[in-house]
């Protein structure tokens, strides 16, 4: 059944895709094998999962300032998430999404987004409207 989630106004284009969800954080620098498009840090809850063309749903962003370049670098090579939803984003990843023109939203009205959306669900992210729709 379709469910509409309200969030803060986000960044980037409207996208639809399959959700990949974990109650964990996200560092582009330390969690990913960016060449092969998989989560590579063994301790990460999504270790071994491919993130290519998925919409990631995670708690918050971690990692240093350098990661601001990385979403752009990933997008240019075409092995990239379609978008990322956080409970709370950090400044660096938002700046990175702005450069990469990637969909990113945070601050959901219904609470912890990582427990509301399930992996495998198809979701539509509309950053300008501050809205995420679970389509199935």
């Amino acid at each position: 059944m379709m469910k509409v989630l309200k969030c803060h106004k986000g960044i980037g284009p409207k996208v639809t895709g399959e959700a990949l969800v974990a109650d964990d954080n996200f560092s582009t620098r330390y969690d990913l094998d960016r060449i092969n498009g998989v989560f590579s840090r063994p301790q990460h809850k999504l270790a071994g999962e491919s993130y290519d063309q998925k919409i990631l749903v995670l708690n918050t962003a971690k990692g240093g300032v350098a990661s601001a370049w990385m979403l752009h670098e990933m997008t240019a090579r075409g092995i990239t998430p379609k978008g990322i939803l956080f409970n709370e984003a950090n400044t660096i990843l938002v700046q990175g999404a702005a450069l990469a023109n990637m969909a990113m939203c945070d601050r959901f009205e219904d609470g912890d987004v990582t427990s509301i959306i399930k992996s495998g669900q198809i979701i539509e992210v509309d950053p300008a409207a501050g809205e995420v729709i679970i389509l199935d």
């Binding site: 350098a66 752009h72 670098e73 090579r77």
Partner: peptide
């Protein structure tokens, strides 16, 4: 500005 080649990549240099 922080910009090391590992994170900037080819795309960042082009930019």
């Amino acid at each position: 500005m922080m910009a090391d080649p590992e994170s900037v990549g080819e795309a960042g240099v082009n930019f």
